[in-house]
C-alpha cells in the first residue's frame, strides 16, 4: 500500500491518502500534503510539537487537521516530516505529535504554497483499506 497519491486538478492540487486504519490515512494525508510543500527527505527531525483538533464529523476533522498544519508551518516557520496521531477519538477529536525542524530556505525548497484545504471533493471511504481525499487551494 502506498502512503498517498497526487490528484490532478486544473487550477489546484489534491491528494488521496491511504491507511490500514483511518488514523493512518490521516497521518499519510498530512505527509502527502507536506510533500507538496517541500521534500520531506531534506527535513531533519529536530523538534516536535503537539497538535489537537476537533470537529463535527470525520470529514471536517480531516480538513481541520490539515489546516492546523498549514497554519503552524506558516506562523512558526517550521517544516515537518513525521506525523504521529497519539490519541484518536471516534467522535472526531485527535491529538498528534508532529516532528520536524525550523524552516531553512537554503535546504528546504518551497515547491508549492498551499493556501488552505478545501471541502471540495472531500471524501473519506473504506475499500480494501481506508482512503482520505482532499483538494487544496494553491
Amino acid at each position: 500500500m502506498q502512503a498517498f497519491e497526487i490528484l490532478e486538478h486544473t487550477a489546484d492540487i489534491g491528494i488521496k491518502a491511504y491507511g490500514n486504519t483511518l488514523k493512518e490515512a490521516f497521518e499519510n494525508a498530512a505527509l502527502g500534503m507536506f510533500s507538496l510543500i517541500t521534500n520531506p527527505e531534506n527535513i531533519k527531525s529536530r523538534l516536535s510539537k503537539e497538535i489537537f483538533v476537533e470537529a463535527e464529523d470525520r470529514e471536517s476533522l480531516l480538513v481541520e487537521w490539515l489546516n492546523e498544519i498549514i497554519y503552524r508551518f506558516e506562523v512558526d516557520y517550521e517544516v515537518y516530516k513525521r506525523f504521529e496521531i497519539i490519541e484518536w477519538d471516534e467522535e472526531y477529536r485527535l491529538r498528534a505529535i508532529v516532528y520536524g525542524e525550523e524552516l531553512d530556505l537554503g535546504r528546504h525548497e518551497i515547491k508549492t504554497q498551499i493556501k488552505a484545504c478545501s471541502y471540495h471533493m472531500l471524501k473519506i471511504e473504506r475499500e480494501d483499506c481506508w482512503y482520505a481525499q482532499v483538494i487544496f487551494d494553491v
Partner: peptide, 9 residues
C-alpha cells in the same frame, strides 16, 4: 472559466 473548488473560477 475553469475548475475551481465550490464555485468555478
Amino acid at each position: 472559466i475553469h475548475w475551481g473548488y465550490g464555485f468555478p473560477i
